[in-house]
Design a protein around this nucleic acid. Structure first.
Length: 453
DNA sequence: GAGTTTGAAACT
DNA sequence: CAGTTTCAAACTC
């Protein structure tokens, strides 16, 4: 299914009416405050090539919503990678708006959720119809389809539009998405609809598409032509193809630990676990969401033969820490050395200049999120004579990250563009940009102050 | 390759 | 939540 033209986004409420875009606000934005991203009033449009863009820029770009959201943020397939995916959902670079989505075992007790094309861990005999496994480590929205004919629920056998009106389905979807902070994109068989279940929202968002998905004789919805959110399904299917040997679906995906490892190739390093059964986060394979393959581990349980234990281990990890499988490095764009550690390191003796340090290992600088002692992992060029300062002072400097600078640039550019649209005089345009710059600086100073207190 | 160091994860 | 233990990777010799 190629998305052409625009489509309407609507919430799946009892009325099933098309909702205005205000109700489809930031469908994937993970943020405590939905206002963080300023996307409340955006219309989402998909272009001819499966591209999408946000319409109507926010009137006010500010920090720490530090990034303005240049209007018509165009999303193309290349942007939707493990690192830039957040840009699609929210161009905001603010740490408050940084988005990464820990995956979770997609599972339902009563409804089948199928990866669109994948066969990962799905028994061929469908002996466990209630449990379909998908990688829990993905940054991507979970792609699944709801096959009406196979539903073992009271809603089986009804058309897709009717189906989605069923509260039960909504509850099931809500149940599914309650375990994940990432979007679940559900292809509703036969209806030409796609449910986009936003974990931030109480119910799924219902996108009405112009073309229906291809459907096979057995009722399975094929996504061979589906291009959802700019992700060609042919590529997306790779994501679900295998749990242990996931081929990169994005050429530029880096191989840093945590971030984007779901895209790693077969060249990933083998683990050497001996005591953890490869079912704890000590195991890098497990932590990265892949089954062990060609590893040097002993008594490995991180494989298909121990699926039940593996399943329990995943749940256990997520129970301890819902973000356990969340990429550790956020804000990283593919092919670029930038980003920040979500949690920050705690190094004490390495000076954060050895690979013991997760920040250093990921080739990123330490930030104020880190609790490291004697950190030397910061940009000398940005020290500007700060040598001799305390670590805490260095942390202040680290507030101004490349991402923040890029965000400021975005704000200023947005203002300039707005001035141009409004046919403002050069002087007025300059004033608008300067005013925005001042606003950005204020927010940066506030952020520094916050980090130092 | 064996032993040591290191810091994240897990545990108490 | 802080302190301790466990663990596996990084590092050194």
């Amino acid at each position: 299914m190629i998305l052409t033209g625009s489509f309407h986004a609507s919430r799946m409420d009892s009325s099933t009416k098309e909702l205005k875009t205000a109700q489809s606000k930031q469908p994937y934005v993970e943020s405590d405050d939905p206002k963080d991203c300023g996307f409340e009033d955006r219309h989402v449009h998909f272009g001819p090539a499966g591209t999408a863009f946000w319409e109507e820029p926010p009137s006010d770009a500010s920090l720490p919503e530090i990034v303005s959201h240049p209007h018509q943020q165009t999303i193309h397939p290349g942007m939707v990678d493990p690192h830039s995916f957040s840009r699609f959902h929210c161009p905001c670079q603010s740490t408050q708006c940084q988005i990464s989505y820990p995956d979770y075992l997609l599972e339902s007790q009563s409804t089948q959720y199928h990866p669109l094309t994948g066969a990962m861990s799905v028994p061929s005999d469908n002996s466990h119809p209630s449990t379909v496994l998908t990688p829990w480590f993905s940054n991507e929205p979970i792609l699944c389809s709801i096959i009406g004919g196979d539903l073992h629920t009271p809603v089986a056998g009804i058309s897709a539009p009717q189906l989605i009106e069923q509260v039960q389905v909504q509850e099931e979807l809500t149940e599914v998405t309650s375990h994940t902070s990432q979007p679940v994109v559900c292809n509703v068989s036969g209806g030409g609809h796609v449910l986009v279940v936003n974990p931030c929202e109480p119910g799924p968002v219902f996108f009405t598409l112009e073309s229906a998905p291809a459907q096979t004789d057995d009722g399975l919805t094929k996504g061979k032509d589906v291009n959802v959110l700019g992700i060609p399904t042919q590529a997306a299917c790779v994501l679900y193809e295998s749990g242990d040997q996931i081929t990169s679906m994005y050429p530029n995906a880096s191989s840093g630990r945590g971030a984007g490892m779901m895209c790693e190739s077969k060249s990933r390093k083998p683990c050497h676990c001996t005591r953890s059964l490869c079912l704890k986060l000590y195991c890098e394979c497990f932590a990265n969401g892949v089954m062990c393959s060609n590893c040097d581990c002993s008594n490995c349980h991180n494989n298909a033969e121990h699926e039940v234990k593996r399943h329990k281990a995943i749940k256990s990890c997520l129970g301890r820490n819902p973000d356990a499988f969340r990429p550790k490095i956020a804000g990283r764009k593919s092919g670029e050395v930038k980003g920040w550690h979500n949690k920050g390191c705690n190094c004490k003796r390495s000076g954060c200049l050895k690979n013991y340090c997760e920040c250093y290992e990921a080739n990123i600088m330490c930030t104020s999120s880190c609790k490291c002692v004697g950190c030397r992992n910061y940009d000398d060029s940005s020290e500007m004579g700060f040598r001799g300062r305390t670590d805490k002072d260095t942390l202040s400097v680290s507030v101004i990250t490349p991402a923040v600078l890029e965000a400021v640039y975005g704000c200023l550019l947005a203002q300039a563009e707005q001035a141009e649209r409004e046919a403002q005089s050069p002087a007025q345009a300059e004033q608008m940009v300067l005013h925005e710059f001042g606003h950005c600086l204020t927010q940066i100073v506030k952020a520094m102050f916050k980090h130092n207190t």
